[in-house]
């Protein structure tokens, strides 16, 4: 009987195990193997040891793309976290029927194709021909080099990212707010707590698991940012907005240097793993799971 159970279990698990092996484990192992090779996909693998990993620390462009990624990710995570929460808090104050309308409006950009809306935003941000600077000029102000200046370009990408993707954080917060027991707010009201005090002592602590989830996901997503710089700036000006993922793609598919691209991918994996572990450890100090 036991033997039968084991066989049945293996049979049931087989499809999932095979899927994982083919689409996850084998590619991961392959990535490590390719990272130790000189490989252009048209010629056979040529093992070169750790040269690609050494290059990670010596090639200026790799290091600068990491720096760019961290700057952009930091900005995007902060903005998404705060704006998403503010939107959820505002929507929650409306009548239920109106809430569903606002939910749809706020989430709409998330379901649009990034490429098409990015083209529209490129026109909006265009320094000389864009509508944003047109209005600034009407107000007597000067053109802002939204996509041309290495400093302004971060803000422009962040604005686009918030407009396009904040709907995700907003929805998580809205769901999180729904799960906070109404009795807590009633008790606070009876005790004479004001709205700021209620938010600080009830909403925020009760929402910490959601905030943690949102921040963790945003950190992972933002560190792998690709779409926004690819479509808006092409990584420019120069390398100013070239993220690690965009650089990795170019090394792989423009230079056909799959060995080095794999080494970058592995380095990104470890950076993300370290980030995640640190965040999970730190979360013990500020995330409240007790809802009793």
């Amino acid at each position: 009987m036991k033997r039968h159970n084991g066989r049945d279990a293996a049979l049931f698990l087989a499809p999932t195990a095979v899927t994982y092996a083919v689409f996850l484990y084998i590619p991961i192992v392959s990535c490590f193997v390719i990272a130790m090779s000189d490989y252009d996909i048209l010629s056979p693998l040529n093992f070169i040891g750790f040269s690609n990993f050494k290059r990670l620390f010596t090639y200026d462009r790799t290091l600068s793309t990491y720096l760019t990624t961290f700057k952009l990710a930091g900005m995007v995570v902060i903005l998404h976290t705060i704006i998403g929460l503010m939107m959820a808090l505002i929507v929650r104050h409306f009548h239920r029927r109106f809430q569903s309308v606002l939910r749809s409006i706020y989430y709409l950009p998330s379901i649009l194709t990034t490429a098409s809306v990015a083209i529209a935003w490129r026109y909006i941000f265009h320094s000389d021909l864009g509508i944003l600077n047109y209005f600034l000029r009407q107000l007597g102000l000067s053109n802002i080099p939204w996509l041309l200046d290495p400093q302004w370009v971060y803000g422009s990408i962040a604005v686009f990212s918030v407009w396009k993707f904040v709907g995700g954080a907003f929805l998580y917060y809205l769901i999180g707010l729904e799960t906070i027991p109404e009795s807590l707010y009633e008790a606070a009201k009876i005790d004479g707590a004001g709205s700021v005090s209620t938010f600080r002592h009830i909403t925020l602590p009760m929402l910490t698991p959601t905030i943690f989830f949102v921040v963790l996901n945003l950190c992972i997503g933002a560190t792998q940012m690709f779409d926004e710089p690819f479509f808006l700036t092409g990584g420019g000006p120069g390398d100013a907005s070239r993220t690690v993922n965009l650089f990795l793609y170019e090394v792989a598919y423009k230079e056909f240097n799959f060995g080095y691209a794999s080494a970058i991918a592995i380095s990104l994996f470890f950076v993300l793993a370290i980030f995640t572990i640190v965040q999970v450890k730190a979360s013990n100090k500020w995330v409240t799971y007790d809802r009793a």
């Binding site: 041309l148 420019g236 000006p237 120069g238 390398d239």
Partner: peptide, 16 residues
Amino acid sequence: EVEAAFMRAFNTIMSD
């Protein structure tokens, strides 16, 4: 690769 490298320089010049 050559095109990408040149265009990177070109865009850096023309944006500043």
